[in-house]
Design a protein around this nucleic acid. Structure first.
Lengths: 168, 168
DNA sequence: ATATATTTTCAATATTTTTTGAAAGTTCGA
DNA sequence: TCGAACTTTCAAAAAATATTGAAAATATAT
């Protein structure tokens, strides 16, 4: 397979992949493009390569920057802004985990706290099932939270060598 | 907070949560409703409770069954079908992980295998960056795959007590 | 067998999400 | 300070996704 074709496939399937994870197609595609670009790219480069509008490009680059996955680069003597993606995939994964934890897991845990002390007779089957469900989700959520914290701090090597040994 | 209100909040935020994970709102809501229902429910119960159409209810229950999260229950002497969700959250999580691994991770790995041996001069910076990116994603993917396999087999207790100790 | 209850399908519709592109805003060199 | 280069915004349009509801299919009781 030629590089050009491989590149297309990579970008397109990374985009499709993203949509299964609540990330929009374009954002994932821009990320993919930057991941495989040896040098920083401008908005115009990205627009042209992915065939998308200026506005769309701009918004999604901005969003990638918010996620901490892309950085603005100023090249000396150049007027345009350049963009580059973190290439270390382990760092990328950790960054995504960190953001999603903050954006999704933590608010969910706060809600569960409130829901756990619903009024009503604990002998009422409906109340009991509700509280049990909420509590067990909370319990698992807390574990996940702690596990992810450790993961976020870990080095890839640590993850690979130690965790893999433990996991038989 | 009264049960009724807590229930609404739980269902609605479980639905919103789902949309961040590529699951449609209704499917997640039906799942939430069944999770907190002590007894199995019929399609009509679900339609009424969530205020959604018959067709929508039917399709999403079907999808939940495909995901292995909901089961059809036949109550003796009853004409209608009843539905119930697995209540053990750890089992639920494992089931979701198992399905997503099969549906998303595995096809992605297959693609990366193909893309990794792109033609071209490895000294070409573009080719090199592409191959390096693909390879490192593949490497991490393989680790994730193995880790998830172990997790799928694990008991919650095992997960909690052992993993937590290791993770300091 | 027939009538009735129940489930399933799917074209049409509604809703949500994404994308566009032109105008407004900003930056920077001369 | 001006004007060109570049970036950002956002209302409108397009595209993607979800939902409805009525008709068709299926199952069950009599």
């Amino acid at each position: 397979m030629k590089l050009q074709e491989a590149k297309q496939q990579f970008i397109s399937s990374w985009g499709a992949f993203g949509t299964h994870w609540g990330i929009n197609r374009t954002m994932a595609q821009i990320h993919a493009l930057l991941l495989i670009s040896p040098d920083p790219l401008t908005q115009d480069d990205i627009m042209e390569d992915l065939n998308i509008s200026r506005g769309n490009t701009n918004m999604n680059i901005r969003e990638l920057i918010n996620w901490g996955l892309v950085e603005r680069v100023i090249l000396p003597g150049e007027r345009k802004e350049y963009f580059t993606a973190e290439k270390d995939i382990w760092k990328v994964v950790k960054q995504i985990v960190k953001e999603r934890k903050k954006r999704e897991l933590e608010p969910m845990m706060q809600l569960l706290d409130k829901l756990e002390d619903v009024e009503g007779d604990k002998k009422d089957k409906k109340v009991k099932t509700f509280v049990d469900t909420v509590s067990s989700i909370k319990r698992l959520g807390l574990q996940a939270d702690k596990t992810l914290d450790v993961m976020i701090k870990a080095e890839e090597n640590w993850f690979v060598s130690n965790l893999m040994k433990i996991f038989k």
